[in-house]
């Protein structure tokens, strides 16, 4: 079953089109990786999929219904969104921040109930922050904040999980824990789309991969068929070696073949 689908989706900011047209399907129980060089439009695509940025052309279908016909709060009950970063203007604790994930399920004047508390506890436990629940988020490192954001999305018990570079700032152990957490969720039928920079993390985490370049899809398909040295090398402008390793092969960039594009 398809949870989230993009059809000829285009979007951008002001006069500038950043993404499109892109086709994408996020099946229930599978994880799609979105990869591409800096400025390829990965985060913009994720915002379009989440409905944070309205589509200019084409459409997004959430559970078969056009996303533009969903009320924002209703959509947020189904779609968990993990932004790239978090600003903390005022010092919230971890548990307060994770409780924000229940906001789409609560009325404006309604205080959180036992079901909300239980969902928050489960999410904290899932990402391993149970013991740090009363710590101020503003005192935490970038990697720990990333885990808080993931827990906040999980507290909403989403059917679709959209994550923008969730591994940024995570050490190796936490990256592997992130892979485990997302794979566990996916095994329960959640559909996930994840923007990633790390090819090897993508190889471990995702079932399918979509590679963007200048807003357009240049490759998409099962991860094992797309994460290949010739494709990655051409898109990222580097030479790539594929080293055999137990489980998933390891992709190692060796050297640049072209200079990165610069603004002229």
């Amino acid at each position: 079953m398809t949870t989230l689908q993009a059809r000829r989706l285009c979007g951008g900011y002001g006069a500038r089109q950043v993404v499109g047209p892109v086709d994408l399907e996020v099946e229930a129980g599978s994880c799609v990786g979105i990869l591409g060089p800096n400025g390829a439009g990965k985060s913009t695509l994720l915002r379009l999929l989440a409905g944070i940025l309205p589509a200019r052309a084409g459409e997004v279908l959430l559970l078969g219904r056009s996303l533009s016909s969903w009320r924002r709060r209703e959509a947020a009950r189904v779609v968990g969104f993990v932004p790239q970063s978090l600003s903390v203007a005022f010092p919230l604790t971890v548990v307060e921040m994770v409780m924000q994930g229940r906001a789409p399920h609560l009325g404006a004047w309604q205080p959180p109930g036992p079901a909300d508390e239980a969902a928050v506890e489960a999410a904290l436990h899932e990402v391993g922050l149970g013991a740090r629940r009363d710590v101020g988020v503003h005192t935490m490192s970038g990697g720990e904040r990333q885990l808080v954001l993931l827990a906040r999305a999980l507290a909403g018990q989403p059917r679709v999980l959209l994550m923008d570079e969730p591994a940024t700032g995570l050490d190796v152990r936490h990256q592997l824990a992130l892979v485990d957490t997302v794979r566990r969720l996916v095994a329960t039928g959640v559909g996930a789309a994840v923007v990633l920079h790390d090819w090897n993390l993508a190889a471990r985490l995702t079932d399918r991969v979509l590679i963007l370049q200048e807003g357009r899809t240049v490759a998409s398909g099962p991860s094992g068929e797309v994460l290949l040295p010739e494709i990655l090398g051409a898109v990222f402008g580097v030479t790539v070696d594929r080293l055999p390793a137990p489980g998933v092969p390891v992709l190692v960039p060796r050297g640049a073949t072209t200079h990165p594009p610069t603004e002229s």
Binding site: A50, Q84, W109
Partner: peptide, 24 residues
Amino acid sequence: LLHHGRDLGLLGTGEESAAGLGID
């Protein structure tokens, strides 16, 4: 303002973060 109390808390964590939680 009281009606939007919870929304204001979400906005304190950034616009994208708030929008992702269903805030218009």
